[in-house]
Amino acid sequence: MQAMQVKHLSMSYEDGKKVLTDINFSVNAGELVSILGPSGCGKTTTLRIIAGLQRQTSGNVAIDEQSIDSVPVFKRNMSMVFQNYALFPHLSVFENVAFGLKQRGIGKTAIRKRVAEILSLTELTDLANHRPHALSGGQQQRVSLARALVVNPTLLLLDEPLSNLDRALRLSLREEIRRLQQKLGITALFVTHDQEESFAISDRVIVMNGGHIEQIASAQTVYAHPATTFVAKFIGFENFFNVTRQVNSDEYLSGEMHLYMAEKTTKPAVRLCIRPENIRFDTSMNTQQNSLNGIICDKTYLGRAYRYVVATDHLGQIKVDSEGATHQLGDAVRLTLPSDKLIALAE
C-alpha cells in the first residue's frame, strides 16, 4: 500500500531558478526509501516540501491518496530528524521527547509511560534529565530520533541525520535507525549524499540529480544496473566508452573497438561503462573478446588495491584496480573487460 505519493512536484524560486522538475515517487507503508544525490540536487528541498516547511510551485503531496498541500506543517503528523539534531536547548531529554505528545493533548501519565518506552528503546533512559548541550553528538541524534518516533508519525523524514557524526558512530546509528524503523513498522524517507549509507539502510533508493529523478530501484539494482551516466558515475563507475554504433543487440562499436555484452538489450545505448575493479589484467596474449593492449602510465596505492591507469590503443585511458603490485610504469599489458560486467547506458 502506498503511504505517501509525490506527484509532478516542481519548484522554482522567484528569480526563475528551477530547483525541482516533475518529481514523482511513492513510499509504501512500512518501507524505508532513501533519496541519494550530491548536494544541491534538490533532495532536501523535496523532503522539506513533503514536511510542509517549504511550498512547491506545482504538483502535490498525498498521504493515503489524500492531498495534504493545504495542511499546515504542524498538523501533518510527520516527524523529522535533522542533520544538526535541532533539539530544544531549554528542555531536558525527557521534555524534548515529550514535547510532541504534549502538543497532541495527551495526558501526563500516558506521556510519561510512552516517553519512558521510547527512551529505553533508544537506550537514553539514564540521560532523561540531561540538557542537550551536555550530550555528545551521537546521543543528541538519538534523542532527536526518539523525539521523532514517540509521536508515531505517518511519515518519518530523516535529513542527512548521520553527516555530523564520525564514521564508527555513523555505522552503529544507521543500524539502530533501521532496527527501530522495522520494529515499529514506521514509513520513512531518508535523505543522504552517501551511497553506502543509502544502500545499507533502505528498501529502495531514489537517485536525484539537478532537480530531477535519475533512477528509482532497489539498492542492488542501482548498484548493478545504473540507469544513467550520472548514476553510474555517482556509484563508482569510472570507465566510460562512447558508443559509435550498435552492431547487434549485444555488440557495440566504440571507435575501432568491438565490445560485447553478456546480455542482449533492445534499448539504444549511448555509452558503456565498467568499474575499475572489474577489469582483468590478462597474462596470456591470446586474442579474446573485449581484450585490448595498453601501457601502464600511472600507478597509485589506494590501500585495498593498486590503481593503474592504462593508456590503451583503442579506448583511451582506462582505470584498473588490482590487488597485485606486479606491474610497473611503462609495462605493456593486456586488459579484458568482462562482458558480464559491462553496462549499457541510455543517457
Binding site: 514536511a51 510542509g52 516547511l53 506543517v73 504542524f74 498538523k75 501533518r76 503528523n77 510527520m78 516527524s79 523529522m80 535533522f82 535541532a86 533539539l87 530544544f88 514535547f99 510532541g100 502538543q103 497532541r104 532527536s144 523525539r147 509521536v151
Partner: peptide, 8 residues
C-alpha cells in the same frame, strides 16, 4: 521547524 513538526 522541529517544534512545528512536533505539532506546535
Amino acid at each position: 521547524e522541529a517544534s512545528w513538526l512536533s505539532g506546535a
